[in-house]
């Protein structure tokens, strides 16, 4: 077992080394033109320079600020409205079509409205993020609230549990896995929208720095690619954090328990993590 892991990780490192080596080699051989695509060593140096100064961390901080504010607002609104809609059959059937419609609108369509209302500000960024996060999540919350197991529902009725107590002890736990999946997707969507708002809308953060570096010409391209790498790492970290949090909070739920039981098989847990990100 240990041998297999060592082999896998060895192979992964080898692939990384080969890719970086190939990149450097192609640049050195002149196959990739330096004024179009910087070499690996230039990019790595730029990344190191940026990371040792404050500029990179400021950009990351600004991006995270828009991401977090928008996510909190969008999630809070979706939880509240989704629960209310989900609890009433007529409201659910009336509203679900409208929600599906808004969910299908590419967020970027809303960006110009945000721009004329707020300009290139933090408000514009988090408003867009909140809008983008709200629609997919509110659907998940509705499904979650409506997915209550009939036996559990009848039992609560028989036992006379109702009102807030029913909500907290029965409805919310049964909706939790749906909400968790929705949250993880929302976190990823929020980052993409936040970066679009910076790249196109000009709100400050990683996206804006990348565009500025591109406009500044070939000598600054290494910095542009350094920021692109940072954006990817940020994506991995945020997605990973939400997966871990979900496993921690929902450890009692079947979906997580069965994952744990089969945790020996790494393939399964990896697959599961991926599936849920995508679903």
């Amino acid at each position: 077992m240990l041998g297999r892991y060592a082999l896998t990780y060895g192979l992964r490192l080898a692939v990384l080394a080969a890719a970086l080596g190939l990149w450097q080699g192609l640049s050195a051989a002149g196959v990739i033109r330096g004024d179009e695509f910087p070499s690996m060593s230039q990019t790595a140096t730029a990344l190191w320079d940026q990371a040792s100064g404050s500029s990179l961390w400021n950009a990351v901080g600004e991006t995270l600020e828009g991401w977090a504010l928008g996510l909190v607002i969008g999630v809070a609104a979706a939880l509240l409205l989704g629960t209310l809609i989900g609890m009433n059959g007529f409201a659910y059937r009336s509203v679900i079509g409208v929600i599906e419609f808004f969910k299908a609108i590419p967020v970027i369509a809303i960006l110009p409205i945000g721009l004329v209302l707020w300009g290139a500000t933090l408000t514009m960024k988090f408003a867009l993020v909140a809008f983008a996060v709200f629609w997919p999540l509110v659907i998940q919350v509705c499904y979650g609230v409506r997915s209550l197991d009939p036996v559990a529902r009848d039992t609560t009725t028989v036992l006379g549990v109702r009102g807030p107590r029913k909500f907290l002890t029965v409805t919310l736990p049964s909706a939790a896995p749906f909400i968790a999946t929705g949250l993880r997707v929302a976190a990823a969507v929020a980052l993409i929208v936040d970066i679009i708002a910076e790249l196109i809308g000009g709100g400050s953060g990683l996206g804006e720095r990348i565009l500025v570096a591109e406009n500044a010409g070939p000598s600054v391209y290494p910095i542009m690619y350094a920021y692109i790498v940072v954006a990817g790492i940020l994506g991995v970290l945020l997605a990973g954090a939400f997966s871990v949090a979900e496993r921690y909070v929902l450890h009692w739920h079947e979906s997580q328990r069965s994952a744990k039981a089969q945790g020996q098989d790494r393939g399964y847990s990896e697959r599961k993590g991926l599936t849920l990100v995508v679903s």
Partner: peptide, 19 residues
Amino acid sequence: ATSPYLYFLYVLPAPVLVP
């Protein structure tokens, strides 16, 4: 061998690649 890198590219917010 490639799965972590594929995941990286999947999670990378694609609009940053426009410039």
